[in-house]
Computed example of a mutant assay.
Amino acid sequence: MVSRRFVQCDVFTSVPTKGNGLAVVIDGEGLSDEAMQGFAAWTNLAETTFLMSPTATEADYKVRIFTPAREMLFAGHPTLGSCAAWLRSGGRPKIQSVVKQECGVGIVDIDLSGRIPAFAAPKTTVAPLPDDKLKAIMSALGLTPDRILRTAQLSNGPVWQVIELASAADVLAADSTKIRYPQFLGVGLIGAHAAGSECDYEVRMLGASSGMSEDPITGSLNAAIARWKYGSGEWQRPLTVAQGTCIGRSGRVSIRYDSTADTVWIGGQTCFLIEGTLSL
């Protein structure tokens, strides 16, 4: 057993315990795949990350991301939480105000220049949502065609089956117990709040491989949706998305688009709740 620095934090919220929890093993060097997967299953959080020295020369650190069941190439709240933990443990980026994280999809930039840290959304493949998947989701949730505005299958590492509903109320009314992993995986719902609301949209991610009824706040899903929406021209301005409402969370995702660089930025705050060491 080796003593390793460890933190547990809450991402995409300014209120501790109201975001998406993340375990970060800061000293992740030397652990086998089996050990990392086993520890992630033990924490029983949506994701657990392990930080290590980068293999890419331009990167500041490398991260590996595990759910209790599998490794992920990329995920949003582990990106922001891991970056915050790396900085808190004394990490210093090679380029001022930009952290370069190496992960399964390559190098992801995290912008530290603003009030809220934000990662650059990876490129996203947009395709039609296959009819059989759409029909299965509609049947499980009892959705009717008149409440569905748009659908797409999005891929930015994970693959998402996304359905845009007529309103945020429709999103909040969906019964998450009807969409369970592994029959379903990565079902994203989005709907607009009324004009003048605190948040512009409500998002939910059902069919989480973590075994939870739904993911509290999903940065990678929001990133894929933002790429889709800004890319189609439907979104033009900065937006705030709420997630986790149905399970008592206060997730807030800040989204903006830099048209000059064709970059979508996904921002969120991180709160630290536990800091210490573990033996692994």
Rank of each mutant, 00 (worst) to 15 (best):
K178H: 13
E47Q: 09
W228C: 10
Q101N: 13
G186H: 07
L51M: 05
T17P: 00
Q161T: 04
R92N: 10
G207F: 11
D258Y: 12
I137L: 04
G76I: 12
I116T: 14
R5T: 13
L239E: 09
P16N: 01
E47N: 10
S250D: 15
A224Q: 10
W160T: 00
S197E: 14
E102A: 08
T177W: 06
S250R: 15
G276D: 08
T177P: 00
T263M: 13
K18D: 03
S232R: 12
R92M: 10
D10V: 09
L278I: 15
L87D: 00
G38D: 07
C83P: 02
V25W: 05
G188C: 00
G191A: 04
M212P: 00
T13C: 09
A223P: 03
I137F: 03
S155Q: 12
G38E: 07
I163F: 10
Y230N: 13
G21W: 08
S139L: 14
G219S: 05
E234N: 08
A224L: 14
H193K: 10
G191C: 04
F12M: 09
T144I: 11
Q101Y: 07
Y257M: 02
L206R: 03
L129V: 06
L185V: 10
A127E: 14
T245S: 15
K123W: 09
T43L: 00
I116N: 07
A59R: 07
M36V: 04
Q37D: 02
P158F: 01
N20W: 02
K18R: 13
L22F: 04
H193P: 04
R147S: 13
R150S: 10
K178Y: 08
F74N: 02
L141C: 07
G251E: 07
A169M: 12
A85E: 04
F66A: 07
G104H: 09
Q96E: 12
A75F: 02
L143D: 08
G91E: 02
L185M: 07
T277A: 13
F184A: 11
I266L: 04
A85P: 01
P93C: 06
A23I: 00
L221T: 07
L129G: 03
L221S: 10
R4K: 14
V25K: 09
D109A: 12
E198W: 06
T144K: 14
R115Y: 00
K100Q: 15
L129A: 03
L239S: 07
S220H: 11
I255K: 13
